[in-house]
Computed example of a mutant assay.
Amino acid sequence: MTDDPTQVDDHTQVQEFFGARAARWDTRFAGDGPAYAAAVAAMGLPSGGAVLDAGCGTGRALPYLRTAVGSSGTVLGADLTWEMLTEAAGKRRDHRALLTQSDVARLPLRSSVLDGVFAAGLIAHLPHPAGNLRELARTVRPGGLLALFHPVGRAALAARQGRQLTDSDLRAEPNLRPLLAGSGWSLLSYVDQDDRFLALASRDTPA
């Protein structure tokens, strides 16, 4: 198994990759909290709103999402890997959100029920990006937000993983903008710096 998770796209491989690393995940990336907090704050979620953390992993974003929507809001955390969800529960992050083992390609949610989706590192693991982003769009109300986030930028992440950036990188703005546009989203802002990657998109109003 490669140590570069961006090369893993099969569901079984994703589960194996993250399952084997779940117990050490938070320790490896212990300093990422402020970046998560800033990314959630940038979404401007409404108090009392509903938000999904898609590919929530060990649930690092869940406390910040709960703070954003308040005690009257709804926070859901969905992940494909049971071991990651177990870590989230062990850290009592399930007290901040309802956790579900779910595939983002087939979310157990009605249409247009969410105010936003937060997705940390998710896009690199989507087997069918356009269709998967369209499924996320299905669950979000028109005008709701999608946050595609990573606590380091594309170049810093590539250097960490010992690989080169390529023109085919989905997170590059020239690729991401049309991908989102074809999946029900409009890119609102794009930041790719060493200490943060954050693309915010708005759910289009259906024609």
Rank of each mutant, 00 (worst) to 15 (best):
F17G: 05
Q13F: 00
T27K: 13
G116P: 09
R60A: 15
S112D: 13
W25K: 08
V152L: 04
V14F: 02
L165D: 08
N132F: 00
V191N: 04
G49P: 07
A61P: 06
G55F: 00
A199D: 07
L65F: 11
A159L: 09
Q7I: 06
T81F: 06
G57W: 11
T74K: 09
T166M: 05
Q164V: 10
Q13W: 00
C56D: 11
T74D: 09
T166A: 14
A147G: 02
E16F: 00
G31L: 03
G59I: 06
T27N: 11
L107Y: 01
R66Q: 12
R138L: 05
Y64L: 06
S189R: 14
G44S: 06
L148I: 12
T205H: 14
R60N: 13
D10M: 03
V69M: 11
A23W: 02
F17D: 06
Q7K: 15
E87S: 12
A201Y: 05
H95K: 10
G59M: 09
L52M: 12
A20R: 15
G162T: 09
W185T: 03
S168K: 15
P63Y: 04
R141Q: 12
L157H: 03
D94S: 13
L188Y: 01
A172K: 14
D103C: 06
A147T: 02
G31C: 01
W82Q: 13
S111R: 13
T86A: 14
S183V: 00
D94W: 01
A156L: 03
V113N: 04
A30W: 07
E16W: 01
G116R: 03
T58C: 02
V113A: 10
P129H: 01
H95G: 01
A88F: 05
L76R: 10
V113P: 07
F197Y: 15
P34Q: 10
L76C: 07
H11G: 07
D10L: 12
P127Q: 04
A89V: 10
R177A: 15
F29P: 00
L99C: 06
L62S: 11
P206L: 13
R196K: 10
H95E: 14
Q164F: 01
G90F: 10
R171M: 12
F18K: 07
V40R: 07
V104P: 06
